[in-house]
Simulated scan of single mutants.
Amino acid sequence: MKVLQLIDSLHAGGAERLAVNYANALSPRIEKSYLCATREEGLLKDSISKDVEYLFLNKKSTFDFKAINKLFLFIKTNRIDIIHAHSSSFFLATIIRILNPKIDLIWHEHYGNRAQTSIFNKFVLKSCSYFFSSIITANNSLKSRSEKKLVVKKVYVLPNYPVIDASLKTTRLHGVSNKRIICLANLRTDKDHINLLNAFFEVRALKSDWTLHLVGHYNEDDYYKTIKKFILQQHLENHVFIYGSRPDVYHILSQSAIGVLASKSEGLPVALLEYGLAKLPVVATNVGDCKNVISNNAEGILVDAQNSKELAEALLVYINDLDLRNKVAENLHLKVMSTFSETNVMKSLLNIYKNHQK
């Protein structure tokens, strides 16, 4: 069996990490594993296993015929059986599927905020779904939505899982040791950093020696400028730090005391699992499948989305109780290790692939 993971970029986002993790984990388990980045490369390129064959298309537009032909020939030459398309790469994958009807196309839905996209984008996705062999989703709500809104018979739920490379140690966080709050999330509106900043502003008023660290890819867009403006207006320049994408996630987490996610929407955030793997106590908004990771107060604290006061209060609970932080961190670590493992996910994924090979 030969399988290609298709992803738009290799920036360090959740879907991108999962595509690389899948390609790497599959390489010893199938005949040949491939990975293709369509539009941009990024930090995750260095994480690709030497046993995975990699292709970069450098696609410039929706109908970049040179890139489409390059991918078509690559798939044909290597006799690839399955395209596993992640997130928005489904459109290019559909074109290839039309050109090569014998190939199986599996779409992986990661985007918890899909319902808020434009009518046109929903129409395009539904039209493309006629060509999907099946869909994989990160949680049951995404599965239900896919079954209702798209034209496909087989929809599976497959949880995300974390992989952290402990060998990389390049980033040094600012601030005081054991008094750092980390947020691993690309700077996008659905991650709601403004909610987090409002909460941290309240925290800082009571705990002035604590700092907040934002790690994730960003563009010089209006959202990023809004975040920077907030930091300057509230005089948080020495308390809130933006790092961009970084490859040494485990090293960054090892320097942190509390992990936080303030999202308005999610599927199953990989960052939440990475916090657990690194033994951090976690405060997260109760969106997507966060409740399946943090199922009780002994594993973390869930708060309502877009409620900065509740988020601040939860952070202060951990800030004020080191023993509680240590207990919760250990509980979450055990949960992630037992429930969200590469071995379990790969077994389920291979069964899905094999169902299409019969």
Rank of each mutant, 00 (worst) to 15 (best):
S9T: 14
S9A: 13
V20F: 00
A25Y: 00
A25W: 00
Y34K: 00
L55C: 08
F56P: 06
K59Q: 12
L73S: 06
I80L: 06
D81E: 07
I82C: 10
S89F: 02
P101A: 08
W107C: 11
Q116L: 12
F120S: 15
N121M: 14
K122T: 12
F123G: 15
V124S: 08
V124N: 06
N139E: 13
S141P: 15
S144K: 08
S146P: 05
K154V: 01
V163K: 05
A166M: 11
K169C: 15
T171M: 07
I181T: 01
N186V: 01
T189S: 15
D192N: 12
N195R: 02
N195I: 08
L196Q: 04
L197W: 03
R204Q: 04
K207F: 14
D209H: 09
D209C: 09
G216M: 13
N219W: 11
D222L: 11
K225Q: 12
I231K: 00
L232V: 11
A257G: 11
G259T: 04
G259C: 08
L261N: 05
K264C: 15
P269G: 07
K279D: 07
K279P: 13
V282D: 09
V282N: 11
D289M: 08
D304G: 15
A312V: 07
Y318E: 11
L324K: 09
E330K: 01
S338F: 06
S341Q: 05
N355Y: 01
H356C: 12
Q357T: 12
